[in-house]
């Protein structure tokens, strides 16, 4: 791991502990020997109140590559997560997480999680990443909403 990567992640952790948006959580995972793995974090994204996502807090994993922050972290929901812009593997399709699109080293953890929260209720129909959720979202919104509500119950706040 480059020294900048580790240094930046330690500062991100400090900043997050000092202040983070309401309802979110994020922390580095632990290695088998109990030490912190700074390059792999677990986090939770609460659905926005008064939306079909509002009842859930959705788990994500954040993997920081060795050349972070020059390269973006890889952010994943659990495999099979139901959302038009999430691949079957759980990988999130979001421009700020894409190196060739809008990723910049100055983007913080806070901006990433807020971006994902906003993506939940505002799917981008122009970049589908999975068949079921995308098809339902564009053709049968009732079925889509039922599925989303069902999923939210699986990950209660």
């Amino acid at each position: 791991m480059s020294s900048l990567c580790l240094q930046r992640l330690q500062e991100e952790r400090k900043k997050w502990r000092k202040d983070h948006p309401f309802g979110f959580w994020a922390k580095p995972t632990k290695n088998s020997d109990g030490s912190l793995n700074m390059q792999r974090w677990d986090a939770g994204i609460p659905g926005k109140e008064n939306t079909i996502w509002g009842q859930g807090c959705f788990p994500i994993t954040i993997e920081y590559p060795n050349d972070y922050p020059s390269k973006p972290p890889k952010v994943k929901f659990p495999a099979g997560f139901y959302h038009p812009n999430v691949y079957p593997s759980g990988t999130i399709c979001l421009s700020i997480l894409n190196e060739s699109q809008d990723w910049r080293p100055a983007i913080t953890l806070k901006q990433i999680v807020l971006g994902i929260q906003s993506l939940l209720e505002n799917p981008n129909p122009n970049s589908p990443a999975q068949e079921p959720a995308w098809r339902a979202f564009s053709r049968n919104i009732k079925e889509y909403e039922t599925k989303v509500l069902e999923q939210a119950r699986k990950y209660p706040k």
Binding site: S2, L4, D67, P69, S70, K71, I96, R104, P105, A106
Partner: peptide, 22 residues
Amino acid sequence: DGLTNYFQSNEDGNQIKCPQGA
């Protein structure tokens, strides 16, 4: 330090996007 690291990651030496978001 941050800039050096960012521009080093770009091997071909062309202009790349400003590190500031947007």
